[in-house]
Each structure stands twice: as C-alpha cells, then as structure tokens.
Amino acid sequence: MSGIIKLILTTVITLFSLNTHSLESEMIVNVNVDSGVLEGTFLKAENSNTVALIISGSGPTDRNGNNPSMINNSLKMVAEELKQAGISSLRYDKRGVGASANAGLVEENLRFEHYINDAKKWLTFLNSQNGFEHITVIGHSEGALIGMIVAQSSIVDSFVSIAGAGQSADKIIQKQLTSQPASVSEPSIAILEKLVHGKIVDNVPPSLGVLFRPSVQPYLISWFRYDPLKEFKKLKKPLLILQGDTDIQVSVEQAKLLHGVNRQADLKIIEGMNHVLKEAPLDKSRNIQTYNDPKKPVMPEVFSEISQFLKENA
C-alpha cells in the first residue's frame, strides 16, 4: 500500500471515528409532525440511564432558552450541566421557532394542543432509544404546563417544573392587567371573560390588538382551557418544583399553589434566582439585564436540585 493511500485511509478512518464519537454525545435529531419537521439537540451523557425532555417557555423561545430579542442560553446551560452530572437530555425548537420554523402554522390555526402533541412526539422518540431506564420531563415557564400534561403518560417516570405557573393563563393575564390604567384593564378583562368561555371577540380596540388580535384569539382560547392545578394534581409520580424568589414573571406564590394540590412534590425555592434561572435582584431593570447575558451562568442550585432529585428517584 502506498504511503499516500495509507495516509488518505488513515485520515478518513480518523475523521469517521471523530464524527461518530461526536454524534454519540451530541446529536441533532428530528421528528415529523403534522405541519413539518421539528429539530432538537440530543445530549447523551456517558453511562447514562436517565434522559430528560426539556421544554422551553412561551413565545418564540428556542431550545436554548433564547428568542429574537434576548440571548441567555439558560436551557442550553441546564442541558450541558446535567450531562456533566450523568443525565442525558433532549431539548428542541418549538414549531415555528429556530430550526423548526418551517413547521409553523399561520397564527389563526395554531392551538395549545399542537405544543402538547409535539412534546408527546419527542417522548415517543426518547422511549425508542436504547439504554434509558428513566424518562423525566423538565418544563420551564409555559413549558411546565405542557410538561405536566405530557408527563401524565405512563412512559414518563418523573416531572420537574421550573418557574411554572399555578394559575391558568387567563388569570395571570388578568392579574397583570390590574396594574394598567382603567382604559386598558377594563376592556381587556371584558375580552378575557369572553375568550375564557370560548367566544371570539371581533371588535378589539386597536390599542389592545397586540394582545387580543383576532388571529391569536383561537390560540388563547385553547390555552386558557388548561388549569395547571388540575393537571398537576393528576400526576402520581416523583415531582419537583423549582422556583426562584426574584422571578418577576412567576411568583413564589404560584409554586406554592402547585405544591398545595400535590403534596408529594418536592418544593425548592432558590434564593436570588430569576425567571431565566440566573442570579438577579428584584429590581426590575437589573433583573431584566440578565435576560440578555449569555455568559452569566445559571445558578448551580438548578443542577444540584435536579440531579439529586433524579438520582433519588431513578
């Protein structure tokens, strides 16, 4: 065999081996849904028998916890730190977001159930993977509501809620509206009441169009149907509630509401942690600064609490 051919073959074998090793520890994976293809990142920890499905929060939030107006990499950090603790994970871009953009629906056709069914698809994928004895679901913010619904499946062994609300979305929005002028809060609450009862509101004041435009109302109606307390109460498996006490979006009281309906859950309040899982004060402007700081680490208590919970319940 000539030296050149031997060099070429050695190089090809080396490249293939490196690529295979890379794919075994971090893979880009896909599942087909009704409207297209969803993409996710599968991190496989060495000698891992536990895998977590990580579900991101509301809006155009991607697999890493980022959206077009902020980059904090919070969920990416969670996945990477869990890997170091021996826990594999899969996190994904929701339909219409990031690499799953082509699977998005026109706004008037989107329903909350689409997100639920997509998460179930990913669970089916994880269940098909060899070597995992324990599947957990980790949901952040709105992803916690999706998570507690799909975690009712028999293939899910445990569930972790991070910054999950204890009230339905309409009640949270209504509470937020109380701080607005009467000219905003009164017509908004009237619209909310109709949406809760499944009624479309045609004559929305232009000033309220951002929140209640007709095209988004079907999604809101579908979202408002789900009561986190009812869904969380149904779970009869190991549960962990994580909540930061400087979260200016979801309060500690919301976590306590969840714990109140399902006392078998472990409730852990992390001092100084905000909504994007980073250390921050209650001061709003300084708190929000962390939402766009990808170098600021997620608080270590997040990883330690989750890994300890999973080790105790695997």
Score class of each variant (00 low, 15 high):
Ile138His: 08
Arg225Ala: 09
Lys268Gln: 12
Lys194Phe: 08
Val196Ser: 14
Gly272His: 04
Leu258Pro: 00
Ser141Lys: 07
Asn19Val: 13
Glu24Tyr: 10
His197Gly: 06
Gln308Asp: 10
Gln249Tyr: 12
Val201Leu: 14
Phe303Leu: 14
Ser188Cys: 06
Glu108Met: 06
Gly98Pro: 00
Glu133Pro: 00
Ile241Pro: 01
Pro281Trp: 07
Met27Pro: 09
Val31Cys: 05
His134Val: 07
Pro60Ile: 05
Leu38Trp: 07
Tyr92Cys: 04
Asn102Phe: 04
Met1Val: 05
Lys237Met: 12
Tyr115Arg: 05
Leu310Val: 09
Ser25Gln: 13
Lys171Asp: 14
Lys121Gln: 13
Pro206Ser: 00
Glu133Trp: 02
Pro60Tyr: 13
Arg111Thr: 03
Ile288Leu: 14
Leu277Glu: 07
Gln308Met: 09
Pro281Asp: 06
His114Asn: 14
Gly147Trp: 04
Asn203Tyr: 11
Leu15Trp: 13
Ser222Trp: 03
Ser185Gln: 04
Lys44Glu: 13
Glu142His: 00
Glu312Trp: 00
Thr246Met: 08
Glu193Met: 02
Ser88Arg: 03
Asn203Leu: 10
Arg95Trp: 03
Gly143Pro: 15
Asn292Ser: 08
Ile269His: 02
Glu271Cys: 06
Thr178Leu: 13
Leu239Ile: 06
Val204Ser: 09
His21Lys: 11
Asn32Glu: 13
Leu208His: 02
Thr50Ala: 11
Gly166Pro: 01
Ile248Arg: 10
Leu7Cys: 09
Thr61Asn: 07
Phe309Val: 05
Glu279Leu: 13
Arg263Lys: 13
Gln243Arg: 03
Glu81Gln: 15
Gln264Ser: 15
Ser17Gln: 10
Leu310Trp: 12
Ile155Lys: 05
Val37Asp: 02
Glu305Ile: 00
Val302Trp: 10
Asn19Ala: 14
Leu282Thr: 08
Ser141Phe: 04
Gln308Ser: 13
Ile135Leu: 15
Val33Thr: 11
Lys230Cys: 04
Val216Phe: 15
Ala165Thr: 01
Asn117Glu: 12
Ala45Arg: 01
Leu195Thr: 00
Ile55Glu: 10
Ala280Glu: 09
Asp266Ile: 09
Ser168Glu: 14
Leu240Met: 07
Ala103Lys: 06
Ile13Met: 15
Lys175Leu: 08
His275Lys: 11
Val196Thr: 10
Pro238Asp: 10
Val137Trp: 13
Asp227Lys: 11
Gln217Met: 05
Pro281Thr: 04
Met273Phe: 10
